[in-house]
Amino acid sequence: MTPVAIRLTVNGRPESLVDVPSGERLLDTLRWRLSLKGTKEGCRTGGCGACTVLVDGRSTLSCLTLAREVEGSEITTIEGVGRDGTGARVQEAFRAAGAVQCGYCTPGFVMALTGLLKERARADGFDALLEDLGGNLCRCTGYAAIVRAAAALRPGTGAP
């Protein structure tokens, strides 16, 4: 029950957080303790992908992750993703494709794609690419441009 202190590295910066309750989600740690509001809260049940961040390089739903469960990990949010070559490429692809409408889902999509590229998952073609992005929702339904940005980042997948 006693809240404890934990250490995280967030966007390359070591952070020491005190009084972290057991049930605190990484999403709330990022937004409310560290004021990194780029990570969005959408459904809070894992269904929309808006809260996606990287934990040790892997895309992770920060709404379904307890902060204390990732103690000692390296967290990357949309605020820090451009520091990395892969993340910067994803951001540029989104800009070039005009893949942003209201922008609420954009951080989640950028983090999800950055995670996929870092993981070097098999390039299985366009269907698998869409499947891998299936956890991220765009309420503006601006998918065509997002898919173009994604296709440009994974050579050989071929845009529709």
């Binding site: 894992g46 992908g49 895309s59 739903l61 499947e131 891998d132 991220n136």
Partner: peptide, 12 residues
């Protein structure tokens, strides 16, 4: 396995 959640969910 691929039918479970999304990539980001399956990472955990």
């Amino acid at each position: 396995v691929r039918a479970v959640g999304s990539v980001a969910l399956r990472q955990r």
